[in-house]
C-alpha cells in the first residue's frame, strides 16, 4: 500500500515536471504568460482601492483583508491548475472518449488523468498570492497558514472540478454545467462574503464551497481557530473521497458504456 502510494506520487511529480518542461520550450511565451497573469491580478488592486475610497469597510473587510482574500484565491487557483489542470477538462475527455489511454496504464486513472496537463499562467497566480501575503501580512506563521490553506483550497477546488466534470458521464451538456459552476465559484471567491446574504450565503458554504476554500481560511489567517481548522481538514478529506467515488462510478459507466458515438 505504502510503496504503491510512493510510486503513484513519483509518477505524479514526474508528470508535472515534464508538463512544465514542455511549457518552457518556448521561454518568451512562458515568461510573458506568468508576468501578465501577475499584472492581470494586480488590476484588481485598483478596483479595491476605489471601492475602499468610497467606503472604509466592505462586508466586514478592510483593504488589507481583501488583499489576503485575493492572494489566497490566486494561489489556491494557481496550485490547482499547475498540478491538476486536466481536472478542468474532464468533460472533453469523457465526451470524446479520451480516457482510453489512461485506462491501459497500471496506475490510478483519476490521478493519471488530472495530472496530465498544466497551465503556465497558473504559476503567475501562485506567485502573486505569495507576493500579496508577503506585502500585506508578512509573518512566518501567516506564511505557513497561507501555504496550508492554499493546499487544502487547491484540493477542494480540484475535487469540486472532478465532481462537476464527472457530470458528463451521465448528462448531456454536462460540460456547460460544470464550466458554469466553476466560473460561479471563481467570481464569488474574490469578494468578501459579508456582502452576500441569506440563501446565497448558505450556498457558498455548501453546494459551491467557496466558503471552505477561501472565506474560512482567510478568517483563520486573520484570527486562528483550531476548531475551524479541524472542520476544514475534515471537509477536505471528505470531498476528496467523494470525488474519487463519483469519478469511479462514472468510469464504470464509461467502460460499460453506450454513450459515445466516437468510440466504436
Amino acid at each position: 500500500m505504502l510503496t504503491a502510494a510512493k510510486q503513484q506520487g513519483k509518477v505524479l511529480l514526474l508528470s508535472v515536471k515534464y508538463n512544465i518542461m514542455r511549457q518552457m520550450t518556448n521561454r518568451a511565451a512562458f515568461i510573458t504568460n506568468i508576468t501578465f497573469m501577475i499584472l492581470n491580478n494586480a488590476t484588481f488592486i485598483i478596483q479595491w482601492m476605489i471601492l475602499f475610497h468610497l467606503k472604509e469597510d466592505i462586508g466586514g473587510y478592510h483593504m488589507n483583508d481583501v488583499m489576503v482574500l485575493w492572494g489566497l484565491a490566486a494561489s489556491t487557483y494557481g496550485l490547482s491548475h499547475i498540478f491538476f489542470q486536466t481536472a478542468y477538462n474532464l468533460p472533453d475527455l469523457i465526451i470524446n472518449g479520451k480516457l482510453d489511454s489512461y485506462l491501459v496504464q497500471p496506475k490510478n486513472v483519476l490521478l493519471g488523468v488530472i495530472s496530465s496537463g498544466t497551465n503556465t499562467s497558473a504559476i503567475g497566480d501562485l506567485l502573486y498570492g505569495y507576493l500579496i501575503i508577503c506585502i500585506f501580512r508578512f509573518s512566518i506563521v501567516n506564511l505557513l497558514l497561507f501555504t496550508l490553506f492554499s493546499i487544502t483550497g487547491a484540493l477542494i477546488l480540484t475535487a469540486f472540478a472532478i465532481l462537476t466534470g464527472s457530470l458528463s458521464f451521465w448528462i448531456v451538456k454536462g460540460d456547460m454545467i460544470s464550466g458554469n459552476l466553476h466560473s460561479v465559484l471563481l467570481h464569488f471567491s474574490t469578494y468578501p462574503d459579508g456582502i452576500f446574504k441569506g440563501i446565497i450565503r448558505l450556498l457558498l458554504y455548501t453546494l459551491i464551497p467557496v466558503g471552505l476554500i477561501i472565506y474560512l481560511p482567510v478568517k483563520m489567517i486573520l484570527r486562528f481557530d483550531p476548531f475551524t481548522l479541524l472542520l476544514l481538514l475534515g471537509f477536505t478529506v471528505l470531498i476528496i473521497f467523494l470525488a474519487f467515488f463519483v469519478f469511479y462510478k462514472g468510469l464504470r459507466r464509461y467502460s460499460s458504456s453506450n454513450l459515445m458515438s466516437a468510440r466504436i
Partner: peptide, 24 residues
C-alpha cells in the same frame, strides 16, 4: 441554447456587483 446556458457567468458577475453596491 448554448448562449442561454452561457448566461450564468453574466448573472453571477452582475449579482456580485449588485450586492457590492447595495452594501456600499
Amino acid at each position: 441554447l448554448n448562449i442561454i446556458l452561457g448566461f450564468v457567468s453574466f448573472f453571477v458577475v452582475l449579482f456580485v456587483f449588485l450586492n457590492l453596491w447595495q452594501y456600499i
